[in-house]
């Protein structure tokens, strides 16, 4: 009875792992196949042909798209963290009227359906003359990165001991000094986590990037992959698509595996954004 129980438990564990990992594994297998090999169903790796990768990296602006995505995601994160650190200090540490309401409003913004601001943002982007430039994405991504970082950093900061801050106040430190000299060193782990989560969010975003770009050279990676097509409608280049998918996913997977504990902590603190 006991062995039966543990066998079925481990069977469940194996099923969970297989279910999670298989699609990614199969994409890797496919990305190394080419020609007619591609159109046979293979469960195990069978060839190691780099031609799909060569095709993706040399052709059609894909490297450019990676560059765009890196630039947009990094700038978005830096911008969001910069605004969020000071704001979350005020929200976590200073008592003022309307604080609860403000927090709820920020949370509400993070749950906005992005389509609801699309028309207004489109106008704003056109007005500012940043349509089809990376700045259009950097501006629009603020709508989901900023509330999220503020929310998570506020929860982190609320948990820091009051005594440290009181000691600093007694020493005559201004709020700005408290943030930059006292809290920042303690906040590093939280900043890394939220920064990483915001980076992943910005890296993966599709709707704004699709709408605010009009030429191949300004596309971000998700748009480039989403719109990657072959010579004709019928011929979808599955090999290169899988190679491109693997290229943009491997760094993320590595990051996630390295920081898994922190990410889990950040996700559950924020409770937001899949």
């Amino acid at each position: 009875m006991k062995t039966l129980k543990s066998v079925s438990f481990y069977a469940l564990v194996v099923a969970v792992v297989l279910f999670s990992v298989f699609p990614f594994y199969y994409a890797i297998v496919t990305s190394f196949a080419s020609g007619t090999e591609l159109f046979k169903v293979n469960y195990l790796p069978h060839s190691l042909d780099w031609s799909n990768y060569v095709k993706v990296m040399t052709g059609r602006n894909f490297v450019r798209s990676i560059g765009n995505s890196v630039f947009i995601a990094t700038t978005t994160v830096v911008f969001a963290l910069f605004l969020a650190v000071t704001a979350s200090y005020a929200l976590a540490r200073v008592r003022f009227r309307g604080r609860g309401l403000l927090l709820m409003t920020i949370l509400a913004v993070s749950m906005f359906p992005q389509i609801a601001v699309l028309a207004g943002l489109f106008e704003l982007v056109r007005f500012l003359g940043i349509f089809n430039t990376p700045w259009a994405m950097i501006l629009s991504y603020t709508i989901f990165t900023l509330p999220f970082t503020v929310w998570v950093l506020t929860t982190f900061m609320r948990d820091l001991p009051v005594e440290i801050e009181e000691a600093a106040i007694v020493d005559g430190a201004t709020p700005w000094v408290i943030i930059t000299r006292v809290f920042m060193p303690l906040l590093w782990p939280a900043l890394v986590t939220t920064g990483l989560l915001a980076f992943i969010g910005a890296w993966n975003e599709f709707l704004f990037a699709l709408t605010f770009t009009s030429s191949e050279t300004t596309r971000t990676v998700p748009v480039a992959i989403g719109l990657l097509s072959g010579a004709s409608q019928q011929e979808i280049p599955w090999g290169p698509i899988m190679a491109a998918s693997v290229i943009v996913t491997v760094p993320l997977v590595i990051l996630v595996l390295i920081f898994q504990r922190k990410i889990v902590a950040g996700l559950t603190a924020g409770g937001v954004k899949g």
Binding site: V16, S20, F24, W203, N204, F206, V248, L252, V253, V256
Partner: peptide, 12 residues
């Protein structure tokens, strides 16, 4: 392992 599907971009 279960974090992998979460980390993969939706488009991918």
């Amino acid at each position: 392992a279960i974090l992998i599907p979460w980390a993969i971009p939706t488009i991918v």
